[in-house]
């Protein structure tokens, strides 16, 4: 059972693809929780939504390729540009003029693109464990296209293994994201949300990646155009992104950086209370007149 049912749900349609969104609560401001699709869907924010629905208006959506949204099957359907347009389409369809964006990993890049291209629609961004091309990617143990002579460990991070045992990859990946002891439920959830889609869909997005931001230069140029307030969270045990992109992002923007020590890549799921309070405090600084102490 969900802790909080949506007050409204619907679909934004963009380019013939239906994007499922939900709206919770009312009031100001709107907080838009950005998806990490197609890997997982909007339930990734389930530890945040009920709390913020009591204090503000919350919008979530399933990115294309997972959840209740359509799963187009062309590479072109998963380009950065398309995913950016989806986000604005959801804001339009949910009648959201402006919002605070809360993003994790790769959706941080998308949130920054929204702030750069639609500054009047973005009040601020909470960037958690940002996935943005500000630091060289750590070298992979196995080439993605290779066929290692084992299926153990990082050998699973290969195209042939994804296609052969996508649930096996999903489980392995979830375990990497939650290195904290006692994370079984979070690992089960993340695994289940991943297997709501397929390896093939994820491969389309992998292939499409980078048409708007695909290099350090692109990412730095993008950040130079972001003028809204930012709050950045770095997790020291982040197996997906490390802390370098977060640190570089804070350096370039002068934004506040909060370090989570002992935390893996997904603080919103594993350390929800502290994350909720951080978001709350950040939102309060953006809308002073609306908050009653």
């Amino acid at each position: 059972m969900r802790a909080r049912e949506p007050d409204r749900s619907g679909f934004a349609e963009h380019d013939g693809v239906r994007i499922a969104f939900e709206v919770f609560g009312e009031g100001e401001p709107t907080i838009l929780f950005m998806p990490n699709a197609p890997i997982i869907h909007s339930l990734q924010w389930k530890a945040q939504v009920p709390y913020f629905a009591r204090h503000a208006r919350v919008v979530t959506y399933d990115g294309r390729g997972n959840g209740r949204s359509d799963r187009p099957t062309t590479v072109g359907a998963y380009r950065d540009e398309v995913l950016l347009a989806d986000a604005f389409a959801v804001m339009d369809a949910s009648e959201t003029d402006r919002a605070v964006l809360v993003a994790l990993c790769g959706s941080v890049t998308r949130a920054c693109l929204m702030a750069a291209t639609g500054p009047e629609r973005v009040l601020g961004i909470v960037a958690i464990a940002p996935g943005i091309d500000l630091a060289p990617e750590p070298e992979a143990e196995f080439d993605f296209e290779s066929t290692p002579d084992t299926d153990e460990g990082w050998a699973k991070c290969t195209r042939q293994y994804w296609l052969r045992d996508y649930p096996g990859w999903s489980r392995f990946w979830a375990e990497q994201l939650f290195p904290e002891p006692h994370s079984t439920k979070q690992i089960e959830d993340a695994t289940a949300w991943q297997v709501d889609t397929t390896a093939e869909i994820n491969l389309l997005r992998e292939e499409a990646y980078g048409d708007l931001v695909g290099s350090i230069e692109d990412a730095e140029a993008l950040l130079a155009r972001v003028t809204c307030p930012l709050l950045i969270v770095a997790a020291d045990l982040d197996a997906c992104q490390g802390t370098a992109p977060a640190e570089r992002m804070a350096e370039l923007t002068g934004a506040s950086l909060v370090r989570f020590e002992g935390s893996g890549h997904v603080p919103p799921a594993r350390h929800p209370v502290e994350v909720n309070l951080l978001i709350r405090d950040f939102v309060r600084t953006l809308a002073p007149a609306e908050v009653v102490v």
């Binding site: 709050l231 506040s256 950086l257 350390h271 502290e274 405090d281």
Partner: peptide
Amino acid sequence: LLIRDFADRVTGRIPTSATWTVARN
């Protein structure tokens, strides 16, 4: 605390560089 919170909100001040350590660590 009222004055501090008001001043922080008016100026958009948020923690500049804080660390939060998971409880068990």
